[in-house]
Simulated assay, not measured.
Amino acid sequence: MTGPKAHPFPDAREDLRRSMIEEETPQTLSPTYRLAFDDSDFLMREELRPVRLQLELLKPQMLMDEAGITSTVVMFGGARIPAPADRDRARTPALGALSHFYDEARDFARRMTLESMKSGGTENVIVTGGGPGVMEAGNLGAHEAGGKSIGLNIVLPFEATPNAYVTPELSFNFHYFAIRKMHFLMRAKAITVFPGGFGTLDELFEAMTLIQTQRMAPVPILLFGEEFWRSIINWEALEAAGTIGADDLDLFRFVETGEEAARIVLEG
């Protein structure tokens, strides 16, 4: 704790230190005697879920505030998109054919980070899911530009660690998908979406739903790869059925290159 105390009570760290040097007795060795905030077994109890939700909301928010991050550019996209050098090892030829989007993501992030650094590197900071594929490309592009980028990982059975290019002090790990998605959008000034699977679709449609229902201020939503997106979503059929309005098709636009996307974002 730095600076003068705002109250006359002991600091939590001070009490934790004191509790660790107490005499060992049957009472002090009992789990019930542990300070609640230092008792991981207690914090993991089902009844503490609301507290864990709040902690997961607060920790990234506070640390990004302390890092001076004022706005972000979101990059959603598939973990399975290979780098072009690895396209022949992709699980399907179709997936290998999407490998050029790795380079476009990398180029887009590099361009946006170079622009961000002109104003101190705290605005339009690249944020990805912190994993492989398109996410790795985004963090790599920011790293190559000499800037910082954020990684919002989540505990999954098949993505063990963040990619190597996330800025370490801006690397976060989540238990709750819902809180993670809030952090993607809380500072977003633009959202880019590359080809991906269920997770990417979930992130895209949540963002569009929030904007459609005016629960979030409008921001540019750029879908990389018109051919891909039109092949998996029949946007016009949704309009024709009346399940969305014609103006809902204006929530997004298609782009093909990092250069094109960066120009749109920077031009506002």
Rank of each mutant, 00 (worst) to 15 (best):
M1Q: 12
T2G: 15
T2S: 14
H7I: 00
F9M: 13
F9T: 10
P10D: 13
P10C: 13
D11N: 11
D15H: 10
S19R: 14
E24I: 12
P26Q: 04
P26S: 01
T28W: 15
T28D: 08
L29T: 13
L29I: 09
L29P: 01
S30W: 03
T32M: 12
Y33P: 01
D38W: 15
E56D: 05
Q61Y: 15
M64T: 02
E66W: 11
A67H: 14
G68E: 13
G68N: 10
T70S: 07
S71T: 11
T72Q: 05
V74R: 07
A79K: 08
I81E: 06
P82R: 07
P84W: 08
R87H: 07
T92C: 10
A94I: 00
L98E: 05
S99A: 14
H100I: 01
H100F: 12
Y102H: 14
D103T: 08
E104G: 03
D107Y: 12
D107Q: 12
R111V: 06
M112K: 06
T113P: 12
M117T: 04
K118W: 02
G120Q: 06
N124K: 10
N124L: 03
I126H: 03
T128I: 01
G130Q: 08
G131S: 15
V134Y: 03
G138C: 09
L140H: 14
G141P: 05
G141T: 11
A145G: 11
G146N: 00
I150R: 06
G151D: 05
F158E: 09
A160V: 11
A164T: 12
Y165L: 09
Y165G: 06
Y176Q: 10
F184M: 06
L185D: 02
M186V: 13
K189H: 00
T192S: 06
V193T: 07
F194K: 01
P195L: 14
G197F: 03
F198I: 13
T200E: 02
D202A: 03
D202F: 06
D202P: 07
E203M: 01
L204S: 02
E206V: 05
I211P: 00
I211M: 13
I211R: 04
T213P: 05
I221Y: 07
L222I: 07
L223Q: 09
G225H: 03
F228Y: 15
I233G: 11
N234L: 15
W235E: 05
A237T: 06
G242I: 13
G242L: 12
T243F: 08
I244H: 12
A246K: 09
L249E: 14
L251E: 11
V255K: 01
E256P: 02
T257W: 13
G258M: 11
E259K: 15
E260C: 11
R263M: 01
R263Y: 10
I264G: 02
I264D: 05
L266N: 06
